[in-house]
Write a protein that binds this DNA or RNA. Sequence first.
DNA 1: CATGAATGAGTCTTCATTCAT
DNA 2: AATGAATGAAGACTCATTCAT
Lengths: 201, 201, 201, 201
Amino acid sequence: MARSIDPHRRDAILDAAHSVFASKGYAATGIADLAREVGIGHGTVYRYFENKRAVADALFDRALTRVADVIAAETPDGTNDLVAYRAQVQRIGHRLFELFTEDPALARLLFHDLGTVDPPLRQRLADALDLFADYTAAYLTNGVAKGFLRAGLDVEITARLINSMIFEAAAKISDAADPDPLRDRLVHAVTTLMFDGVTAR
Amino acid sequence: MARSIDPHRRDAILDAAHSVFASKGYAATGIADLAREVGIGHGTVYRYFENKRAVADALFDRALTRVADVIAAETPDGTNDLVAYRAQVQRIGHRLFELFTEDPALARLLFHDLGTVDPPLRQRLADALDLFADYTAAYLTNGVAKGFLRAGLDVEITARLINSMIFEAAAKISDAADPDPLRDRLVHAVTTLMFDGVTAR
Amino acid sequence: MARSIDPHRRDAILDAAHSVFASKGYAATGIADLAREVGIGHGTVYRYFENKRAVADALFDRALTRVADVIAAETPDGTNDLVAYRAQVQRIGHRLFELFTEDPALARLLFHDLGTVDPPLRQRLADALDLFADYTAAYLTNGVAKGFLRAGLDVEITARLINSMIFEAAAKISDAADPDPLRDRLVHAVTTLMFDGVTAR
Amino acid sequence: MARSIDPHRRDAILDAAHSVFASKGYAATGIADLAREVGIGHGTVYRYFENKRAVADALFDRALTRVADVIAAETPDGTNDLVAYRAQVQRIGHRLFELFTEDPALARLLFHDLGTVDPPLRQRLADALDLFADYTAAYLTNGVAKGFLRAGLDVEITARLINSMIFEAAAKISDAADPDPLRDRLVHAVTTLMFDGVTAR
DNA sequence: CATGAATGAGTCTTCATTCAT
DNA sequence: AATGAATGAAGACTCATTCAT
């Protein structure tokens, strides 16, 4: 069963799927739509992917990796005080927002469309979000252990809440016509809310 | 033109769509699936709904109303100090979590599946989220005006971030096998993060 | 199997079928269309007719009778010279054109739509046209026997040709916005062509 | 957008539609019937025709062309006396009858079935018959102008009457089990009636 | 008797997938 | 390897017909 020959073409198909799935949705997109976008015969898609579902799987992997790469670029236990951690969060935020600005389809695709393809793919998304939550939880645990984050913090849940804020901000930036002025505002709002809350002092 | 004589049956179809759409997704669900679930002939569905798309629309309306009713049960400008506001947020949180606990499909359906049906339905979801954000923003604006919330708060964005946390928590509770012990933990985590942040004091 | 109770209502259904079949065609017309036109529940149609096909059958009978009544109003062997025959033909023509003017749907229904319903109904139409041709042939045979029509006339075929002219003229008058000025012209053209041909003398 | 690569197959589908539509009627014929007749999968029909309606349209075009080609083979103003015109009419008649003999479904399809598909197609048929009438009228006008046809002839209407005779004869020959012996008889009957009428001289 | 809610057979149409070229 | 013609399973939708009220 000869699989992919030209990895560049495989990527081109995934690129097409990336944008077309995000705009029309997985179900409404035909294999022929992808092939037309790439400029190849639609039978050729089957040289690179077992079937339509496999395109979604590969696309999910690739999209997930892009986000995971940003998140994994920092280490959870590298910071020893609040200032450093705050800077680190802002760094991650900025990088993520850059990613989602460059690729406005990414957030919708990863967090919305691909999650509705299939129960198995939905599960993969859930697992990925769990993993991201574990990552964030590790940061929080580090901060609590070193005393600069609140003792008794419900780390597991708080990690998910923080991530949901970040991904919400990412989605917002994806939809923005002009994302640049929004970026700093979003990073500032997220870090302020996350570290200080809304209460006046 | 939906003829709809028996509103009970119309609701039964929506109930079926509610659970089946949420588990298999809109696209993968056939009208026959809904009919089988209700125990009627599939032609009968068309006596109550113009077409499959109209089921999604009606379902969205109904689901949205359920959430909106909880949110609209409180008034944004009724609180004058932090204690009252905090209590109010916890009240809304508890009611929402009750709602999502009783109806575990609601969060997935409303916030994920139905948003991928169609551009128009996606837009309706976006509009609804905007409206919810406006609601939360009104609470924040009230608190800032009365001095118990941080001056200079980026109300618009912070409102969306808070909502994303709340809906994330709602989704989490929907997936939980035993949601009861989770509820208080979630409410506590959300209010702590929202009001105080993660910083140790 | 109680059949029709109220013959007036049965006629009303046929009236509805008459106009709706003629305008939308038999296949595109639903039983519900007929019922709506009559102002009764569509289940009631089945009290008067076995099924949709039976409506077409009864409608065909009724429409055919209307034409046959005009044709049978004259007797084939009553005329003894050309002048009388010519007058008779004109009489029949005028009566037919009156019929088709009063009921513009009749020609299309009888000669076009109902003939495409079914092979059996198509056959009934063919039989009716054969009968009409026999009638006309009897006139011609009478004229040939009495010497005022051409000896050696191919009576059988000529009868059909003459009928086709008459029904063509009938169809033309059915479509006319203002049929009155057309009537004399048509009768004149038909009798001239039929009796004298186009040749100059 | 009909993709149509193999015109032979497209023609084969039209051939199937030609015979099946003519025998069962357009409405009663399914796409699957056509595919079965051709010996292809029913989905394949949609590679050659947008939808079922488009088959009727293309079929109408093709059928119409066949008749129009015969009619347009002669020129209206080429004859200068009765003998030549009479010969011309007989020539056209023979050719038409050959056409309808070779293709017995043609008359029913063109003049009956396809006219009941749709209002637009009905209109196209009406337009075609008008065009044919114009053609015949041009012959008559030529004859009147050159003095060998009756002065004062109602050209417009007479043209339609003549055409109706010709198409009636065509239909008759289509239905005949053995058309050959009928052909000369029909041509003779039509020309006699048309030129000389039924009156004895 | 009349009604219209319910039914499901039947049809069109789409599109993922296969495979001969 | 690439192509796209062919395929038929699948699904939305219609409507003639039935039958409980």
